[in-house]
């Protein structure tokens, strides 16, 4: 399992691994928002938590289709499926690797971008905490979507269609926590619910994803 994690991290961070693309995408999306809604600081301050959450979510989505597709195409997944590691473990490790290479960097980058959107000072902590607690759910749910669409030629688009509705609860609680934090309100409840979703997804989604992978490997 650790070997798999180290391999996936190595592949992701080396040339052509796509690491950094998600971050760049996040940056571009956030930079584009003021062009769309106008430069008024009060407006930007109001929408900053939501925009940052949606930007992070879309950036997360961007690299999902590679999660299993590469291993599927080059036959690695066949050998992994017959390896002594359970396929559920493979899914969990790959989701963790995805989070370490996208969710975590996005979380760390969000405060920098928050400056561009005039997020009030008290909102920074809540933004980072909500992203740190919420992005793991995005990775695990995404792993399920990636497992469903792994054998398909044009899986990327379908993956978005399948995964985005599943992201609704995570987005609602995550963005709500960030928003309440930014407005100086109590943000504990949405954060607790967000954590619950992340934990629940991390515990259960690998089983669904592994089931889908087994079907696709047949």
């Amino acid at each position: 399992m650790i070997a798999l994690l180290r391999r996936d991290l190595a592949i992701a961070t080396r040339a052509g691994g796509g690491f950094g693309l998600g971050l760049a995408f996040f940056l571009v999306v956030v930079v584009l928002v003021p062009f769309g809604v106008g430069p008024e600081t009060s407006v930007l301050t109001r929408i900053a938590p939501g925009v940052l959450w949606i930007g992070a979510l879309l950036a997360c989505l961007l690299s999902l289709d590679r999660m299993f597709a590469l291993d599927y195409e080059d036959g690695s997944l066949d050998l992994l499926a017959t390896a002594p590691i359970p396929l559920e473990g493979v899914v969990a490790v790959k989701a963790l690797a995805h989070w370490l290479t996208t969710g975590l960097p996005l979380t760390l980058m969000a405060p920098l971008l928050a400056v561009l959107l005039n997020l009030p000072p008290q909102g920074f902590v809540w933004l980072v905490v909500s992203l740190a607690l919420g992005t793991p759910a995005l990775s695990v749910i995404g792993a399920f979507g990636a497992a469903l669409t792994v054998g398909l030629r044009r899986g990327g688009l379908l993956l978005s269609l399948l995964v985005l509705p599943l992201y609704v609860p995570t987005l609602i609680f995550g963005a709500e926590a960030a928003r309440r934090g930014a407005e100086g309100m109590e943000a504990g409840t949405p954060l607790a619910l967000l954590t619950g979703i992340s934990l629940g997804c991390a515990a259960l989604m690998p089983f669904a994803a592994a089931a889908a992978l087994r079907v696709n490997l047949r």
Partner: peptide, 17 residues
Amino acid sequence: EDAVAYAGHADGVKPTL
């Protein structure tokens, strides 16, 4: 149990490693 290893058409080789 755990007897079989299968190598398919593809090599399962990661180009950047």
